[in-house]
Design a protein around this nucleic acid. Structure first.
Lengths: 168, 168
DNA sequence: TATTGTTATACTCTATAACTATA
DNA sequence: TATAGTTATAGAGTATAACAATA
């Protein structure tokens, strides 16, 4: 009845633990981004483009943002030389936002740094536990996709190294 | 090696899965917040105050923000009647930011709604898996605390219901 | 002197609404 | 008419630097 004030850990509910984890990852994400002179959102954006170039509207959908919000973000990182607006070949209204070489480099670097930071925290975990966690998370992501028909726009693929650079 | 484009799930690395999960939780957090007319940050702030009133500097530390950033946030939610600046009894420079009744009510409601949303996604998980996930997350949080000496400012305690409202 | 909090300033992020130019 | 993207506008969030009041 009281309030198990969970101050120090221990006895977290499932939901609370996920929320706390999420905040922790966000902080790590922000810290890593800052090291590369990026905001969290910018890192997310360029990592997202590692898979393939996307149009403004597609980017908005992928990141859960209005296209008008995307315009400004792209303006800023384009000015920094990380992406460029490549005209769409078949649609003169549209662009494909494409990473520059510099943008590709930074996106991979930031992704790797983030991965390294997370792995550092997870140092002591057994392979079995890691596998369980990954499978549970995949189930959660799938559940969300199923219930909302949606995306959880995010960084990149599985392994970086390979620099197959955004080739459609 | 190629690039296992992980498009649809499956084969996520441990780090990537945590990052994706974190984004998903953030989206859920934002959605729930919006239902209560709050921003994500405001929800995080008031939930944080459920444990106890905090000073501006303490709040900054808890949320990883500069105190000057806190000033504005408190201005806004104070104007909305969710918190108030209570003078510190022993230090005439300081305040204790305290939830109003309305603020307490909304903080609990938002926390419960968030918990419910997360639980909904986790519907099919076995108790064993849940326990494993919670224990792994607690280990990660502890690892971070150990390596940085810090907090991962977040919502509230374990179970809501009990309304022991911010005492002390 | 050190600390608590605020103000001034500037920039990023975000949404809504109205717009242009294609399709 | 519908879609791709932009502009205008407004507000939240954030940091840095300079400041006031109190310890």
């Amino acid at each position: 009845m009281g309030r198990p004030s969970a101050g120090e850990l221990g006895g977290l509910s499932f939901a609370d633990s996920l929320v706390r984890l999420s905040h922790l990852v966000q902080y790590v994400f922000a810290d890593v981004s800052r090291e590369y002179g990026l905001t969290t959102q910018q890192t997310q954006l360029i990592c997202r483009l590692l898979d393939a170039p996307l149009g403004m509207t597609e980017l908005g959908a992928a990141l859960h943002l209005e296209k008008s919000s995307i315009t400004g973000m792209i303006d800023r990182i384009e000015k920094r030389g990380l992406v460029s607006r490549v005209p769409h070949p078949n649609d003169r209204r549209a662009f494909r936002v494409t990473l520059t070489d510099e943008g590709t480099r930074i996106a991979y670097a930031a992704h790797d740094a983030l991965t390294a930071s997370v792995e550092e925290l997870a140092g002591g975990l057994t392979p079995t536990k890691r596998k369980t966690v990954v499978s549970v998370i995949e189930a959660l992501l799938a559940a969300h996709t199923a219930s909302t028909g949606a995306h959880w726009g995010v960084p990149v693929t599985t392994d970086s190294r390979g620099l197959a650079a955004a080739g459609s």
